[in-house]
């Protein structure tokens, strides 16, 4: 039985309709045998049929590193699988697939786009030259401030421990007099609990 849209809707209304539909033969792998739509202009632009390389991890990995040139700010892969009105990303994808089929390596393909469209085509700048600053500055700033903070706190601790020797002795004596370190700790926690 050839599947039609009307037939499909009717089948949905009947019990087990979905099962009936599933029992049908697919209405052909080629587009010509599928039913025409009433309003075809509402469902997108002309696209290529999905091929094996469209889901290829190598192709996807390359396209994720490259920016779509339509101005969307997305990478090529995300754009072509998200923005179905974009005419740039399918074309760029065709180029990538053609280069893969021609035996080019991912790095050669990336280099081709950088050469043609400039460094801005990369989703992240290469870690070389001035760009290294882009990668390192946040970490360096945080590490510097963190180390400075740690050093300052340690210095304070040293000063205090030096000047408070007597106090430390008193504390040690008090600790020795305390019934039990663990019990004292529990006391401290209980007091913290009430005070918080």
């Amino acid at each position: 039985m050839k599947s039609t849209r009307r037939g499909f809707l009717a089948a949905l209304l009947t019990a087990g309709g979905a099962r009936t539909l599933l029992a049908q033969e697919p209405s052909g792998g080629d587009s010509l045998s599928a039913d025409p739509l009433r309003q075809p202009w509402n469902v997108g632009i002309q696209r290529d049929t999905v091929g094996v390389l469209d889901n290829d991890p190598v192709v996807i990995a390359i396209e994720r590193r490259l920016r779509c040139t339509c101005g969307c700010t997305l990478d090529m892969y995300t754009c072509r699988t998200t923005d179905f009105t974009c005419t740039y990303s399918p074309e760029l994808h065709r180029e990538v697939v053609a280069m893969i089929e021609a035996g080019k390596t991912p790095e050669e393909i990336i280099a081709f786009y950088v050469e043609r469209d400039g460094e801005a085509v990369l989703m992240a700048p290469p870690a070389e030259g001035f760009n290294i600053a882009g990668y390192l500055v946040p970490g360096l700033v945080i590490a510097t401030v963190g180390l400075g903070l740690g050093a300052y706190l340690s210095r304070r601790r040293d000063v205090e421990s030096g000047s408070d020797v007597a106090a430390g002795r008193d504390a040690a004596a008090a600790e020795a007099a305390a019934p039990d370190a663990e019990a004292a700790e529990r006391l401290r926690r209980a007091l913290d609990e009430v005070e918080s």
């Binding site: 994720r64 590193r65 920016r67 700010t73 990478d75 400039g118 460094e119 801005a120 085509v121 990369l122 989703m123 992240a124 700048p125 030259g129 001035f130 760009n131 882009g134 990668y135 946040p138 970490g139």
Partner: peptide, 22 residues
């Protein structure tokens, strides 16, 4: 980067992930 090198670059998710995940 554009001010220093005169070159436009893109800073997208790979950059932010690399820097901010740790």
């Amino acid at each position: 980067s554009e001010a220093v090198r005169g070159t436009k670059i893109t800073v997208g998710p790979p950059f932010f992930n690399k820097v901010n995940i740790p």
